[in-house]
Simulated scan of single mutants.
Amino acid sequence: MKNFYIKPKIEFGENSLNFLKNNVNGKVFIVTDKSMVTLKLVDKITELLPKNSLVKIFDEVTPNPTTDVVEKGLKELVLFNPDVVIALGGGSPIDACKGMLYFGRKLKITLNNKLFIAIPTTSGTGSEVTSYSVITEGNKKIALANEEMLPDIAILNPEFMKTLPKKIIADTGMDVFTHALEAYVSKVANPFTDAMALESLKLLNKNLVKHYNNAQDLEPRKNVQFASCLAGVAFNNSSLGINHSIAHTIGAKFHLSHGRANAILLPYIIKINENANERYEVLAKELNLEGKESFVKYIENLKVTLGIEKSLSELNIDFQEFQNLIPEMLSEIKADICTEFNPNILTDEEYIKLLLKIYFGNL
Rank of each mutant, 00 (worst) to 15 (best):
D217T: 13
I242R: 05
N223K: 15
A231L: 11
C229Y: 08
V233E: 08
L266H: 00
A247T: 02
G251Q: 12
A252P: 07
P220I: 11
K253T: 11
H211R: 00
N262D: 03
I250D: 02
I264G: 02
I269Y: 05
R221A: 08
G232C: 10
I246L: 12
E219S: 14
K253S: 14
V209D: 03
A227R: 09
Y212T: 04
N223A: 08
A234N: 04
N237P: 04
S228I: 04
R221S: 12
G241L: 00
G259C: 06
N207I: 02
N214R: 10
L266N: 06
L230H: 09
S228M: 13
A261F: 09
N207H: 13
K206Q: 14
I270H: 09
N237K: 07
F254N: 05
I242Y: 06
A231T: 11
V233P: 02
F254M: 09
H211L: 14
T249S: 12
V209Y: 13
I264F: 05
H255G: 01
F254P: 04
L218M: 15
S245P: 00
Q225E: 15
L218K: 15
Y268S: 08
N243L: 03
D217P: 07
A215M: 08
Q225I: 06
S245N: 01
S257E: 12
H244K: 05
E219I: 15
K222I: 15
H244F: 03
D217A: 14
A234G: 08
N262L: 09
A231N: 11
G232Y: 06
Y212P: 03
P220D: 10
N236M: 01
L208G: 04
H255M: 06
H248P: 01
V233C: 07
K210E: 14
A234H: 05
H248C: 03
A247G: 05
F235R: 02
N214H: 10
I250F: 14
H258M: 11
S238E: 03
Y212W: 10
N223G: 09
R260G: 00
P267C: 07
L240K: 02
P267F: 04
I242M: 11
N207Q: 07
S257G: 15
N243P: 00
S245R: 00
G259P: 07
R260W: 01
L208Y: 03
G241D: 01
F226E: 04
F254S: 08
S245L: 00
R221D: 09
V224D: 04
V224I: 13
A261V: 10
I242V: 12
I250W: 10
